[in-house]
Simulated scan of single mutants.
Amino acid sequence: MKRFDQINMIPFIDIMLVLLAIVLTTASFISQGLIPVDLPKAEQSQQASSDEKVLEIAINAQNQIFFEGNLVTAADLGGKLDAHLNTTPVQLRVDKVAAFEHFISVVDVLKAKQFEQLSIQTEQAP
């Protein structure tokens, strides 16, 4: 019988490539957010930098408000924001069929809490 002096790396590389494919696939789902929101399109949309912690507020098509993935009311949103510095950037994702009234109520709460670093997420228009 032949003696093995080296480790066969081919199976190890195959496993690592499969794991890499799984990680990249799940990372793309995670980065899109958990709240399904059909974003409006804008020609001048820009890619936001993700260097620091960003608070995410979403309003879905049923006009429900989500703060960091948790369902809240507009009244409760102020209390949730109190736990964060008003210099923390806020990203607002609003479904294109959501009532404008809910968008204004969220922006009003942000202004009352003096959050000024607000970005509104849109999709790039073709």
Rank of each mutant, 00 (worst) to 15 (best):
M16C: 14
S31N: 09
D38C: 02
P89F: 12
A99V: 11
F66E: 10
E123L: 07
M1P: 00
N63E: 08
V37P: 05
E116G: 02
V106C: 03
M1Q: 01
A112F: 07
Q121L: 15
F12D: 05
S50T: 09
I15P: 01
A98R: 00
A75T: 11
P40G: 09
L24K: 13
Q47D: 14
A74H: 05
E56F: 13
V54S: 05
Q47N: 15
A99K: 15
T122A: 12
T87F: 03
T88C: 07
L19S: 11
E43I: 01
A112K: 08
P40V: 05
I35F: 08
I120A: 11
P36G: 06
V107R: 05
F103I: 06
E101P: 01
M1H: 03
F103R: 15
P126K: 06
A21L: 15
L118S: 05
K113Y: 03
F4V: 03
A48E: 02
D76R: 14
V18A: 13
K96E: 14
V54K: 14
N8S: 13
E123Q: 09
Q121P: 01
L92S: 05
R93W: 00
L39V: 06
E43G: 09
L34K: 12
F12L: 00
Q47S: 13
L92Q: 09
V94L: 08
V106M: 08
S45N: 01
I120N: 05
M9N: 03
D82W: 00
I57N: 06
E43Q: 08
T26G: 06
L39A: 03
S105N: 09
I7C: 06
I59R: 02
F103Y: 15
Q121C: 04
T88D: 10
G79E: 15
E68L: 00
A112Q: 14
Q32S: 08
A58M: 03
D108Y: 06
Q6K: 15
N63L: 08
P11Y: 07
H84R: 00
Q62K: 08
V107H: 03
I104Q: 10
F67I: 04
T73K: 09
A48G: 11
E123C: 02
T26P: 02
M9C: 10
A42Y: 05
T122M: 12
N70W: 08
V72K: 01
A27K: 10
P11G: 10
Q6A: 13
H102R: 12
L24A: 13
I35D: 04
L17M: 10
A27E: 11
V109S: 07
D14C: 12
F4H: 13
A83V: 09
L118G: 01
D51G: 13
I120C: 02
L24C: 14
V72W: 01
L17F: 06
L85G: 11
P89M: 06
G79P: 12
L34Q: 09
I13G: 04
V37G: 07
V72L: 06
E52W: 06
Q114N: 15
E116T: 04
D38S: 14
F66Y: 15
L17Y: 04
D82K: 04
F12H: 06
I7Y: 04
M1D: 01
L92P: 04
